[in-house]
Amino acid sequence: MATKSLFKRTPKPYVHPYFGGMVLGIILFLALLITGNGLGSSGATSRLVTAATDLVAPEHVDQTPYLLKLAGGDKNPFDDWIVPVFFGALLGGFSSGMIFGRIKLETTKGPNISDRTRWTMSFLGGVIFLYGARLARGCTSGQALTGGTTLAAGSWVIMFAIFGGAYALAYFVRKLWL
């Protein structure tokens, strides 16, 4: 019964984009006001992976320049604000899904591809996106959203590069979505 009430509900509609954006903007403002830091998540992905590497091969971490900065020697890769933000976001997404009846084991995809293709592509997309995000020192949240708000010059360039890259390729992968 409990499972049914959790999973088999009619999903409520999404909020209006301007309303969602306004709430997100207020949260971002409060983050900047109280802590001086914005929002982000890809940094946490990097830190979690480095923590795992550090567990298996600490010598390797100490010899790799990029990992050294995160977990070299006795440094704790979890010792950064982005880690609680990451886990908070997972919990927040879950809570919203609970409240609006959208918790459901499913695959979101375009109408003309199989689940298997969608799974392969989303995995591949994740690999590519995070590689780019670490290269640019931040993703859509850390650079586009946060840097855009603080008027960081580089972040605005990155924002246009993200949209540019996606629009340039969109036509060629339209089978995935249309």
Partner: peptide, 14 residues
């Protein structure tokens, strides 16, 4: 470069 790569990841991975 990172931004362009992210764009590719975005449209491929959704």
């Amino acid at each position: 470069l990172g931004g362009l790569i992210m764009g590719v990841g975005f449209i491929v991975g959704g």
